[in-house]
Design a protein around this nucleic acid. Structure first.
Length: 223
DNA sequence: GGCCAGGCCGGTG
DNA sequence: CACCGGCATGGC
């Protein structure tokens, strides 16, 4: 199971992804900084990545951008403002991201908790599970936690023809083969996402366009 | 018009 | 433990 080869092929094919994107209200879009993707994040970026990780739970990213634009355009994207805003008003602003009542509650709990950022502390909060916690740690705080999402599971399953169950099994599989390399974890996850979105889709994957097709175990059923 | 999206929680067996 | 329904919007 050659994950290093997998990474190299994907990186050569798609290039650096520059995650996590930060929403620019002047440009009216999310900006992927491919020039300096590995520098330390400032506090504003840490906040946006943390809130964005909650907003993107089971949600199309373009809807998350709309929600973040609303927060920024209404001058609500600071810890202070997010603490003061009423939860119902917050819910209206993030409505485009879906599940907006639940997510408003999750954001309130996160903001008002004032936790020190650690995996266990994040997981102790209602509304933050393993993927959201690892997203905050990896992309917000540059810590080597590998993120497992549905794209990653699907691609690993197809690529190596395996089927694991728990999040931690996928995570330890990858981190046991690629140890403690923050910058690899950063790009690798983003590369899984772009491959999953554009090629390795749930239905009708475009295997004929896939850079991994030569050694992928998945057999394209329909042509 | 149906399926899908950068999950998580709570209840049930 | 595994499984499942609920949560909700907008893109394609």
């Amino acid at each position: 199971m050659d994950l290093e080869k997998t990474f190299n092929i994907l990186f050569n094919h798609f290039g650096p992804q520059g995650w996590w994107p930060i929403v620019d209200i002047e440009k009216n879009k999310a900006v992927y900084n491919k020039n300096f993707p590995y520098r330390e994040r400032n506090s504003s970026e840490k906040l946006e990545i943390s809130i964005g990780a909650i907003l993107t739970q089971n949600t199309n990213w373009t809807n998350v951008v709309k929600a973040i634009m609303n927060l920024k355009n209404n001058d609500c994207f600071t810890i202070h403002k997010l603490k003061k805003i009423h939860i119902d008003d917050l819910a209206i602003l993030i409505k485009p991201s879906g599940y907006y009542i639940q997510k408003a509650k999750k954001i309130k709990i996160f903001i008002e908790s004032d936790i020190n950022i650690s995996r266990n502390n994040l997981l102790s909060l209602w509304g933050i599970g393993e993927e959201t916690a690892d997203s905050i740690l990896l992309y917000g705080y540059n810590l080597p936690f590998f993120i497992i999402d549905n794209y990653t599971k699907r691609i690993i399953n197809r690529l190596f023809s395996i089927q694991l169950s728990k999040y931690s099994q996928y995570q330890s599989l990858i981190t046991s083969l690629i140890k403690n390399k923050y910058y690899i974890y950063n790009e690798f996850h983003a590369l899984f996402v772009i491959l999953g979105k554009t090629v390795c889709s749930k239905n009708k994957p475009k295997c004929h366009l896939c850079p991994l097709s030569l050694f992928c175990k998945y057999k394209e059923l329909t042509k």
